[in-house]
């Protein structure tokens, strides 16, 4: 929330108290977002968290039931042409006429914008130069998704929306897509992406907001989200020789297979207690690892906690 004080010109997106209800079901329950110009912002969350609803409200595809939304100085709900000239949208579905060629499709969409990006530049950004004269229907799945991004780039947008850009990709295709998004960022384009892949947000985003149950439950840079969590994870396997000694209080639980996992905010003190204990017995602690809680641990914790709250309501 450190960005909400920024003056409007520095922000590409400013959202306050956004709500969207489908009948009695509230998919988005009052979220605030601020996205700076030129940054890659990821809205991260599990399926059904409200990601697509949020991004479609920002794109102008959906109305909202409450809150204020300002994107590039426009309210998307007004369907202004001037707004659509400045954004690029990549939906989950392709939605391109299957009987046109790649080059024709890009040209057709370029023609809708006042200052389109040159066709060859668009094709080069997504690596489809060789498919220029291929019919859209003959492209592979991965190529169609790349064309999908190409169409979003055709108008040389200031702001690009990518809704789950790599869902269903194989690992190599994901790396390519990530490279493409980094290229976009380097051209100064603001990127707003939704994803349920944590590593995607970690790799690409300058800032991440985690959404669950229609609420933003954490926001910040991937590093700050991880470091906000000061806990360290210590893991080892309980050697048989130690079982005869009284277990130190730090070991709360031993799994059936002998694994021990301790989360602690005082790793040094805990480790000292453990090593003294093992040293007194003269045994090694097999498979001993000490690691910082990863963004994934934090993400799962946050999402679980929010679901528990949601279930209690």
């Amino acid at each position: 929330m450190t960005t909400s004080h920024l003056p409007s010109p520095d922000l590409a997106i400013r959202v306050a108290g956004l709500r969207m209800a489908y009948g009695p079901h509230e998919a988005v329950r009052g979220i605030d977002l601020a996205v700076r110009r030129g940054e890659v912002f990821a809205l991260l969350g599990p399926n059904g968290a409200g990601k697509t609803t949020t991004v479609e409200i920002l794109e102008g595809h959906r109305s909202r039931t409450g809150g204020t939304v300002e994107v590039l100085g426009h309210d998307p709900a007004r369907h202004e042409r001037a707004y659509k000239e400045r954004i690029g949208i990549v939906l989950q579905s392709t939605g391109i006429d299957r009987y046109l060629t790649v080059g024709e499709a890009v040209d057709m969409f370029r023609g809708y914008y006042p200052h389109p990006r040159p066709r060859e530049e668009v094709l080069a950004l997504v690596g489809l130069e060789a498919q220029r004269d291929e019919r859209v229907r003959r492209l592979s799945g991965g190529q169609q998704r790349r064309l999908n991004v190409a169409i979003g780039l055709a108008g040389d947008p200031d702001l690009m929306f990518l809704d789950e850009p790599t869902t269903g990709f194989d690992p190599a295709a994901r790396r390519q897509a990530w490279e493409m998004i980094r290229n976009l960022r380097s051209t100064g384009t603001t990127v707003f992406l939704t994803t349920h892949y944590l590593d995607e947000a970690e790799q690409l985003a300058d800032r991440v907001a985690i959404i669950a149950g229609g609420r933003i439950i954490a926001e910040g840079s991937p590093q700050s989200l991880a470091s906000g969590q000061t806990r360290t994870v210590i893991q080892f396997r309980m050697p048989a020789a130690l079982c005869v000694l009284p277990v130190p209080p730090e070991v709360a639980e031993v799994a059936d297979d002998g694994r021990v996992r301790i989360e602690t905010a005082e790793p040094t003190r805990t480790l000292l207690a453990l090593t003294r204990w093992a040293g007194d017995a003269g045994v090694e602690l097999p498979n001993l690892t000490v690691s910082r809680a990863t963004l994934e641990d934090i993400y799962l914790q946050l999402v679980d906690a929010s679901e528990a709250v949601g279930a209690a309501e």
Binding site: G60, H61, K84, L91, G95, F109, Y112, Y113, G155
Partner: peptide, 17 residues
Amino acid sequence: ISRDAGVLKRVRGTPLP
């Protein structure tokens, strides 16, 4: 067919009225 293939939605997101 265009509607269900997402073609209409795609066009709706562009400046073409």
